[in-house]
Design a binder for these strands. Structure first.
Lengths: 358, 358
DNA sequence: GCGAATCTTGTTAACGTGCACATTCTAGCG
DNA sequence: CGCTAGAATGTGCACGTTAACAAGATTCGC
């Protein structure tokens, strides 16, 4: 076999190389007069490299402006340092808070978050997932319990920890950190019944098409079930518009609420609830005297409006943190953590948007 | 410490191999009876592989559940498919919109976004930047014109397109897509003067410590300069609290505004402005009769409150899209695009929070 | 003072893919 | 029927790093 292939021109002549290429660990090692492994050890702060050797290496790194290539490192070590996060959207403050919490927990261990969002679309989910897995994340975090057939299969085959967040699925793939959206709905229903309301309703988005807010739907199921359990009618649960909901959603639903003479309403989200409050203001409908309102999510705006909004609170930043810590546990070598399901719970926050609250 | 680490138990007995390892391109090629290059070509949809060969390969891929390893691909091709995005925070809807726009533009070309956020901290920026560059992004997008000495150096050395967004820097590193925060401030000042207000003020966060909202500060500079240009005093520009601002910020500033008998105020952000409106409601101060308010950002909540908020609007989703398209141009092989500075402009949106608007 | 233990550094071989080139195959032509 | 252009597929390495092990250098104990 005649392999006379030339390696790469060794920058024969002038010293002035104009490297379009970034410096590599070997160039650093040459400059520092050590082997490339010593440089590698210095970078990773590993072992005990002699202080003076370490200093020489650091100087060489600074002089060359060397930045390690994590892709190469990942390949060699089989550890990418990526954690994948899949969200419906970033435009929701609560999901953004989850991302923040996760980052805060993972930053210390030098993991990077790889974020994808699906816009609440199932078909997009699978495409995104395949993309994410090609980056070889060491764990994957996803929202809720809705997965396409193909998605579930890929998840299993990936051989990495899978953590479902936000919604606590009845049958988790593996780990889960979240709260029960179903319980949110039940809590809202119980609360409104205990306050003596007669015509109790709710507003949510409708479930048509590819874009479905499964978590919101779970809340509505819980709400309806709890009403039914007490022999109350559930016909005042109104579904209209589509996810993701916002102020407009509530504003648009308000005429329907008034027309059907509802006196207390549970909104699928604070944003929707705020929309109702605002629309009532515009129409001269008194809140809470004529209409009481309970939201979900405890968004900051709900605290600021008049009257402030009664809501069900979930600490999403803490949820992200907790998820991050779970991941760190799972990824600790040697640690053998069994499947975890963590319920971060929820709190009803009473404010003036419900009649009779001081 | 006796840790006689074992290699990996070789699943001694049964043939039932439970491969902890994911299948590689070579295993696919073996199963399909072709070379690994043919598989590679099929995956990348390259060249013209014979339809029947292609089908065989696709079957093998499906059978094995093969997912390509992009880290290895990146190393070989010197193309990672990453675009880095550095934001102050994700909790701001407008920044989230930028991320969405960017994604929408880049999705088609199969680029992935790598997001980092600095929490408005300069010291964090440099750390994050080093991290990002180690992932070898093909372009980097960052907000504003504030960079530490070290950050600027790394950016230059990276040898990739650098796009600054949101703020249009006086002296861009390379490319820029955004609007002039300075002009935002001037526009607000001109508008309030043209409406005949006498005691014109503003509220922003203070510039103490490591966490500074440079873009907000630019708006205030423009505001003050325009006032001064018309011989107006600028003493009613109030700085308090710290970035990132939200409803609380405006609410807390309101007593100061009232005490100083300001009759029109420009708030650094809609969120802050909404906080003022709400606090006025609570205090029985009539908006806009007693106090007129202009915000910035055109957040959805500003449209919903009563009275709706006059604001300065910038289309952040379009900004993201535009940035994405610029990146695609820059990364097209052969294309030699000169340094671009794109101003996406701004619009004053008149609503009822300013006295005299119908 | 000599072997063993320990500490520090070096050598070699992967990791899984794509590029550049080499080879084989097919069709078309004189 | 041989030759050639072009299409389809294959071969060998390089990408930049880390794991595993090897080899010097130094210290320690008896």
């Amino acid at each position: 076999m005649t392999r006379s292939r030339k390696k790469r021109v060794d920058d024969g002549g002038a010293g002035r190389a104009k490297p379009d290429r970034r410096p590599t660990i070997r160039e650093v090692s040459r400059l520092a007069g050590v082997s490339h492994m010593t440089v590698s050890r210095v970078i990773r702060d590993l072992d005990i490299v002699q202080p003076e050797t370490r200093a020489r290496v650091h100087k060489a790194i600074a002089d060359l402006g060397y930045v390690p290539d994590r892709a190469a490192g990942s390949l060699a070590s089989r550890r990418t340092g990526f954690i994948a996060l899949m969200l419906p959207t970033l435009t929701n403050t609560n999901f953004a808070a989850v991302a923040h919490g996760l980052t805060d927990a993972l930053r210390l261990a030098d993991y990077d978050l790889l974020i994808a969002y699906t816009e609440y679309s199932l078909s997009e989910e699978e495409r995104q997932l395949k993309n994410l897995l090609a980056r070889r994340p060491e764990a994957i975090v996803l929202t809720g319990s809705m997965h396409s057939r193909g998605a579930a299969k890929m998840l299993l085959a990936a051989g990495i920890p899978v953590i479902e967040i936000a919604d606590l699925p009845r049958r988790p793939i593996e780990h889960a950190v979240g709260f029960s959206n179903y319980e949110v709905g039940r809590t809202a229903a119980r609360y409104l019944m205990s306050r003596g309301f007669e015509r109790i309703g709710a507003i949510a988005s409708s479930n048509e098409g590819d874009v479905i807010d499964h978590r919101g739907e779970e809340r509505m199921r819980g709400f309806e079930d709890e009403l039914a359990r007490h022999g109350r009618p559930t016909e005042l649960v109104i579904r209209h518009g589509h996810a993701p909901v916002s102020f407009d959603h509530g504003a648009a639903a308000t005429p329907i609420l008034l027309e059907r003479r509802i006196d207390a309403v549970f909104a699928v989200s604070d944003l929707s609830a705020v929309g109702v409050v605002m629309e009532c203001q515009r129409r001269g409908v008194a809140v809470p005297e004529q209409l009481s309102i309970v939201g979900f999510g405890d968004f900051e705006i709900g605290r600021e409006i008049n009257p402030p909004l009664t809501t069900i609170h979930v600490d999403f930043h803490a949820l992200g943190l907790r998820t991050g810590r779970l991941i760190l546990d799972l990824l600790t070598p040697g640690a053998n953590v069994s499947a975890q399901v963590v319920d971060v719970g929820l709190t009803l926050v009473e404010r003036a948007s419900v009649r009779g609250v001081p």
